[in-house]
Computed example of a mutant assay.
Amino acid sequence: MRAFVIESGELKVKDMEEPKAKPGEVVVSLRAAGINRRDLGLPKRYGDKPDALIIGSDGAGIIESVGEGVTDFAYGDEVIINPALRWHANSDAPPPEFDILGMPDHGTFAEKIAISAGQVEKKPRYMSWEEASSLALPALTGYRALFTKGRLKKGDTLFIPGAGSGVATFLIQFAKSVGARVIVTSRSEEKCRHAKDIGADLAIATDSDWPEELAGETVDLVIDSVGAATFNRSLDVLKKGGRIVIFGATTEDNVDFNLRKFFYGQYQLFGSTMGSREELRAMLSHMESNQLRPVIDKVFPLEQAQEAFDHLASGSQFGKVVLRIRE
């Protein structure tokens, strides 16, 4: 089967042995796979190991075979992959055995994958293969950050620094679906327009004076994945006693901030990553109830996976970049 792998420090498309279902597993014939920013950093983390590793966390396809003991799924079922491995019940933090699919396990950028039956869910019927394949990791990340950690509710105002990421497009739609007000930032006027098209109430320039732009707003919750470049600026517009949730750091990891200002402001700071299977199922139900869809930026064939990576790395996308595995 064809797969996009890291091998000896290089990314390449190559033939790999087809997987077989062990007891408790299913083999999924993948139709499409969503690319996440996490995937871009895997070559550096994997290093120059000679064994080819299939990367990729998100995907959707049709069950081709089932292993011994599998009763919840059958040949021909249309499914999505849950990349949050071995995290079943909602909890304050992931269990020690938690990991993300795509390293060290073989991932989804391949024609087939063998995976535990507990890591697949029925594909939303109203979604295309490209939409369903780009769903789990970013939508689950956004859902947990927004509702489990951020406790967003109707009437709250949400502030999102950065409007174009896959997670941000889910955050906007989730927040609007429960009656919240949404404010985003972007360096791109086009991304600001796109954000408003999918529900954002206000979109401001990243390099603008945020306190001045938002002087008439009361920001209840900030969800930030940028890191050092925006953390203190976000605190400057967050209301006293407000909540800030961090799920990533695309700029520097380390942040300096004024502790006295922080505790006098009674701010609440939460970390968040991915989510449990319980939250994934709640998220899928929420999306179906509101007929929400992933925002797809561009679709590439598997053989052009490197071009897809380059496109995502450029930061020019709005929404998800997807690999089409099979028609």
Rank of each mutant, 00 (worst) to 15 (best):
G9T: 07
E10F: 09
L11I: 11
E18N: 15
E18L: 15
K20Q: 15
K22P: 00
E25W: 07
V28P: 00
L30S: 11
A32M: 06
R37W: 10
G41M: 14
G47K: 12
K49H: 15
P50H: 09
I54M: 09
I62V: 14
E64K: 14
E64G: 04
E64D: 12
V66W: 00
T71I: 08
D72C: 05
D77R: 01
E78D: 03
R86V: 11
P94V: 12
E97A: 15
L101W: 01
P104G: 11
T108V: 10
K122P: 02
W129D: 07
R144T: 11
A145R: 01
A145V: 01
R151D: 10
D156R: 12
I160W: 00
P161A: 11
V167D: 09
L171S: 07
R181H: 15
V182S: 08
K191D: 08
I198P: 00
A205S: 15
W210R: 03
P211S: 12
D220E: 11
D220N: 14
V222D: 07
D224F: 08
V226K: 06
V226A: 13
A228I: 02
A229D: 14
N232K: 05
N232F: 01
L238E: 01
K239N: 03
G241H: 01
V245N: 08
V245Y: 07
I246K: 06
I246D: 00
V255S: 06
F257T: 11
F257Q: 04
Q266G: 12
M274Y: 14
R281P: 04
A282L: 08
M283Y: 00
M283I: 01
H286F: 05
E288P: 00
Q291H: 13
P294E: 04
D297G: 03
V299Y: 00
F300L: 10
A305V: 02
A305F: 04
A313G: 14
G315S: 12
K320A: 13
K320Y: 13
L323G: 09
I325T: 05
